[in-house]
């Protein structure tokens, strides 16, 4: 008798678990759907007001018109060419500026001496707005690729620099004692203690740098170019092709988000040891 009740209890428990699991899955889907409600409502209203002729298509083309423009641009091969150029510029500038930011950040973080000589100057340069140096870059390097890539590099440099420096300086000094007791050499001290411990900050710097690289890209392409998504937007504006402007903006938005998500995936894998409040 008691045996039987035990078995039935077991069954109840397992079915309860199953119900809970499917409930949880359902919950996840609901949360995802919640995020879509608002944009979909907006899109529908937008489309309808356009279709009823309430808003001029030169000001706000309908979502369906933007989609057709997008497909047209892809089919002619134009869009992909422009996108490639933009991506190349952003990547080149980001790699140049980001690498420099990381290296200088590491050097300044390690040596008080270097910090005292270099950091004040860098902090001063950091506050100079990117837009303000555009005329100078054009004078020095012309309208070519060099000035664009350097502009993006200037933007990408600072977030990585500041955060790498901060990360290195926030290593737990108690772990330095451990490193001494375990006889870490200088190289091991850097690769096994300081860099791993600075990694959360470095990755944050990376994300911010990528964001700034996209921003700087637009500024660079708007300042004058004959290719790239930024050019596409400027060109379309002159001919009042508003839907192309929208396509360009949406591409920036989507790829900004995609690049950010890629770093976030890295963050999740590399920082799974972290024990922080997860909300």
């Amino acid at each position: 008798m008691s045996n039987q009740s035990a078995i039935s209890l077991d069954k109840v428990n397992s079915s309860k678990k199953r119900v809970l699991k499917s409930k949880r899955d359902l919950g996840k889907v609901t949360i995802m759907l919640k995020g879509f409600i608002f944009p979909i409502v907006i899109l529908v209203i937008w489309e309808l007001t356009g279709a009823w002729g309430l808003i001029s298509p030169t000001l706000l083309p309908r979502p369906s018109a933007i989609l057709t423009t997008f497909i047209d641009l892809v089919l002619t091969g134009n869009l992909i060419e422009h996108f490639k150029i933009s991506l190349w510029r952003a990547l080149g500038g980001f790699i140049l500026g980001g690498t420099l930011g990381l290296l200088v950040g590491v050097a300044v973080g390690f040596k008080k001496n270097i910090e005292q000589t270099v950091d004040p100057t860098i902090q001063m340069l950091r506050t100079v707005p990117t837009l303000a140096v555009i005329p100078l870059f054009i004078l020095w390097f012309g309208f070519g690729e060099v000035s664009k890539i350097l502009l993006i590099a200037k933007g990408a440099f600072f977030p990585l620099y500041v955060n790498t420096f901060l990360g290195i300086r926030s290593v737990d000094s108690k772990l330095f004692d451990v490193a001494k007791v375990l006889e870490f050499n200088r190289w091991q001290l850097i690769t096994r203690l300081i860099l791993p411990s600075a990694l959360p900050n470095i990755l944050l710097g990376l994300r911010l740098s990528i964001g700034v690289a996209w921003l700087a890209l637009v500024a660079a392409e708007l300042m004058g170019s004959s290719e790239g998504i930024g050019y596409l937007i400027m060109d379309a504006r002159q001919f009042s092709q508003t839907s192309i402007v929208f396509v360009g903006i949406i591409i920036f938005a989507v790829f900004g988000k995609v690049s950010d998500s890629i770093v976030k995936v890295f963050e999740k894998r590399l920082l799974k040891w972290q024990d922080n409040f997860k909300g």
């Binding site: 772990l175 007791v181 791993p196």
Partner: peptide, 19 residues
């Protein structure tokens, strides 16, 4: 100076959280 000849256990475990 500190060396591996004298092992030290601190009040806190002081492990490397990423390992």
């Amino acid at each position: 100076g500190a060396s591996i000849r004298q092992g030290v256990i601190f009040q806190e475990p002081r492990l490397f959280p990423w390992l």
